[in-house]
């Protein structure tokens, strides 16, 4: 009997995964570089330092939201409420800034975001609602709440105490870009270097196995959706800082850009696979397209068409790559 012969060949095969690791880590970075080079060749103004900074500034709100969205999608969930949370938090922030305690504007806005996120998490974890449905509901309701708090108009504060976040720079880098990069870095640390991060991957990769491993799946989900809410609240603060104002109309369909960034970044809709680095690249691709297509003089409707094609195309490439790997 060839008992021992059969037991070992796994060794040879196991190594095959390695050579794809680089491609996996880089993800859609080559696509980002391709677009940057193409736009730069077509229109040299695109590559100017000031425009590059513009792109980062335009990407920053989406980066902040998409970092939270990455964690949510890693658990095989979805958070449609991010745009509404942004609006509620922004309106709350500006409203509080007009009271006698303007210093509380940011803490309260963040807390509001966190709490709405927790509601999402509880609906999903305790009542076992599908994330799509739960957050579709809260998205709708909290959009209404944002209009209500703003009394149906735009809340304006020309002396907004925290306007620097949206309009000023630190050592030449806009504060909002710095905020986005710090959020990115903290999310990376959380996902790759903490117990919580490993458990997020575990819950998304195999929820039943996570349960069998003594992981409290519900707790993880509540934390993840709360963090997504908190980051959407932060995005609301940043957005309102930039505008010196807030209204119930802010952040509409932002969830789509955030989801697009996450998916472009290679995070699997099925959960368990992906990285926030990919999301950063994904958000930058979207910002580069938005900016580059305008600079290149592409009509607005065509910009939409191209953006859609790029998202589908990038994901197709990703699916193909996964197939080749298998």
């Amino acid at each position: 009997m060839n008992i021992n012969k059969d037991a070992t060949p796994a060794l040879k095969n196991a190594g095959d995964g390695k050579k794809f690791d680089l491609i996996n880590t880089l993800g859609v970075l080559p696509i980002l570089i391709l677009f940057v080079v193409a736009f730069a060749l077509y229109e040299p103004r695109f590559i100017r330092a000031s425009n590059i900074m513009n792109i980062f500034r335009q990407a920053s709100v989406n980066i902040i939201i998409a970092c939270g969205m990455t964690m949510v999608i890693l658990t095989a969930g979805i958070d449609l409420a991010v745009g509404s949370v942004l609006a509620v938090s922004a309106v709350v922030a500006v409203t509080v800034s007009l009271t006698s305690m303007p210093a509380l504007a940011i803490p309260i806005a963040l807390l509001v975001g966190l709490l709405i996120g927790a509601v999402n998490g509880l609906l999903i974890a305790i009542f076992k609602m599908p994330p799509f449905i739960a957050t579709l509901g809260t998205m709708t309701s909290f959009r209404g709440v944002a209009y209500l708090v703003a009394n149906g108009t735009t809340v304006i504060n020309n002396d907004l105490p925290y306007e620097a976040i949206g309009n000023r720079s630190f050592i030449g880098i806009p504060w909002m870009v710095l905020v986005a990069l710090v959020v990115f870095f903290l999310t990376w640390v959380l996902l790759k270097r903490t117990v919580l991060g490993t458990r997020i991957y575990a819950v998304g990769g195999n929820e039943m196995a996570a349960k069998y491993s003594g992981i409290s799946v519900g707790t993880i989900l509540v934390i993840v959706y709360s963090l997504s809410g908190l980051l959407s609240g932060l995005a609301g603060v940043v957005q309102s800082a930039r505008l010196f104002s807030a209204s119930g109309l802010m952040g509409i369909s932002y969830e789509l850009d955030a989801i697009a960034a996450v998916i472009l970044g290679g995070t699997s809709f099925n959960g368990g696979i992906g990285s926030v680095f990919g999301t950063l690249i994904g958000a930058l691709i979207i910002a580069v397209l938005n900016n580059g297509l305008v600079i290149a003089g592409v009509p607005y409707f065509w910009q939409q068409v191209v953006k859609g094609i790029v998202i589908v195309g990038a994901v197709l490439i990703d699916i193909y790559r996964q197939k080749v790997k298998k």
């Binding site: 117990v195 490993t198 575990a202 990769g205 196995a209 368990g272």
Partner: peptide, 20 residues
Amino acid sequence: SLGLFLDMSSADNISLNMLR
């Protein structure tokens, strides 16, 4: 279905219950 995290590293699969 109930045990492994197939897309996680072997090391993480071993250490998952001892993360603390």
